[in-house]
Amino acid sequence: MSLRMVATLSLIAGILLSLTAYAETIEFPEEELPTESVLPVFDKTVVIRDRAVKTAGRFEIGVGTGLNLAEPLYSQTVFNITGTYHLDETNGINVNALFLSSGLSQAGQDLKSGNVPPAGKVFDASLAPTVQEMLFGNYQLTAYYGKVSLTKQTVMNLSLYGLAGAGLVQWSDHSTFGFDVGFGQKLYFTPHQGLRFDMILAMYTGPDPTNPNTTGKALTGSTKLSSSDFSTTYYMRPFMTLAYVYLF
């Protein structure tokens, strides 16, 4: 460890210690500290009163990004716009739009350039139809509202929810119906702003670029093929997204 680093660390420690010296240590009487984990009894059990983040009857919109976790050929990056109307503190209607990148993934690039065995075999997935957008309408059930102290300095409210719905999957040359289920968590750093993590499993049908069914047409060269040139397959794609949300 260099002398400079030691000096820097000493300085930081000194600053922290000096701060400590000005602070007051509050000692609670031991006998007043909680000894029970049972709940007080009221006529009606209400877990929380005056909640910090009130969602009932309010809109929440958000933008974010994420990953198409199981996508082998195309770029895994996705962008999403999400909007939710909370019917009450538990039930809500959610709309989630996912915008997928049409570029090739590293594996897709390697296949395109023939860098993978068998040598010289080219497979250009960018010539096949790809999913461009997905739009799902979901029912959202918030099962849990709580709070968490991540840093021991600040407290954030969080909620856990599940969602399920149906929607449209827009391919580059056609569109199909799809379904999705998922769950997520929101972390609110203010009563109006927060982060939303979603884990969604999208289910839809579409052309399989690895299985062309038109003789003489292959994913080589520069000619783009259409969906009809491929056999149809069933896709189950997990998406993980992180969005910034604002509660109006």
């Binding site: 240590t25 000692e27 709940l39 929380i48 910090a52 102290s149 407290v155």
Partner: peptide
């Protein structure tokens, strides 16, 4: 926050919402 809660206990500042399981455990600072 410029005070310290004794060791072994966690600090949860009151932020306006009341939780049933916290009733009776508040400490005036």
């Amino acid at each position: 926050r410029d005070y310290y809660v004794q060791n072994g206990y966690q600090y949860w500042p009151f932020r306006g919402e009341y939780w049933l399981d916290e009733l009776g455990d508040y400490f005036y600072l």
